[in-house]
């Protein structure tokens, strides 16, 4: 999926968080978004997801204005914490993935993903009984279920063990190689597991840098 962001400005009330942010991503690009707390990373992600209404500036998906964009199921999303998820009512992992899947998604695909993430045995477990890491792995499986054309990932592996994180990044790399555009928010300074093509650095003063992988590595003094 192609993404074009033009002069995106976003404020919570009077407090400006993003100002005149512009970037362009082609199908299959992989951008790492980084910055300190409060620099606007999550705000940017929420704008991309249409959860923050864009009032100043524009976002286009495949040349279509985000306000008219309809194909939202082609976007897979994982956040650091699923703060909006209702955890108290009983629902099993299988039921949750089933109601979140499109018709074309097969049960065998769900099971394979769960297996690879090491949580197949949790299939019939109530989501309320899962640990933070298990829950996050469930959300990761869900984000990849519906053959996404774009993945938006906000600190997706923050509470996940190393092995699952490795599988996760490997799967993201595989999807990316097939043309899936990836936007990932990361606090990590090194991105050795990611096949990123660009880095977007947001600063607290609302300035930003959007660099190619080569430019970024050159600047950071990373050997190829």
């Amino acid at each position: 999926m192609q993404i074009d962001v033009h002069n995106l400005t976003y404020a919570y009330g009077q407090k400006l968080v993003l100002q005149n942010l512009s970037l362009s991503l082609q199908r299959g690009d992989y951008v790492v978004v980084r910055g300190k707390n409060g620099s606007g990373k999550s705000t940017f992600v929420k704008c991309l997801l249409g959860l923050n209404a864009v009032k100043s500036g524009m976002i286009f998906y495949n040349h279509q204005d985000i306000n008219n964009f309809k194909d939202w199921t082609s976007i897979g999303y994982v956040s650091q914490k699923m703060e909006d998820f209702n955890y108290e009512f009983p629902i099993t992992v299988n039921e949750y993935l089933s109601v979140s899947s499109l018709r074309r998604t097969r049960q065998s695909d769900r099971l394979r993903m769960l297996d690879k993430m090491g949580i197949l045995e949790l299939l019939n477990q109530n989501i309320n009984n899962l640990s933070g890491g298990e829950l996050q792995r469930t959300f990761i499986v869900r984000s990849m279920l519906n053959q996404p054309k774009m993945l938006i990932l906000d600190e997706p592996t923050a509470s996940v063990d190393v092995k699952s994180a490795e599988f996760f990044f490997q799967t993201v790399n595989e999807l990316n190689a097939q043309g899936v555009t990836v936007v990932i928010v990361s606090h990590h300074d090194t991105f050795e597991r990611m096949n990123y093509t660009h880095v977007l650095t947001l600063h607290s003063d609302m300035s930003f840098e959007f660099e190619t992988r080569e430019r970024h590595r050159q600047k950071e003094g990373i050997q190829s």
């Binding site: 997801l49 249409g50 959860l51 939202w72 199921t73 976007i75 999303y77 699923m82 909006d84 998820f85 209702n86 009512f89 629902i91 949750y96 109601v99």
Partner: peptide
Amino acid sequence: FEEAKAKL
């Protein structure tokens, strides 16, 4: 379960 993400 996830009203805020209904659009997705």
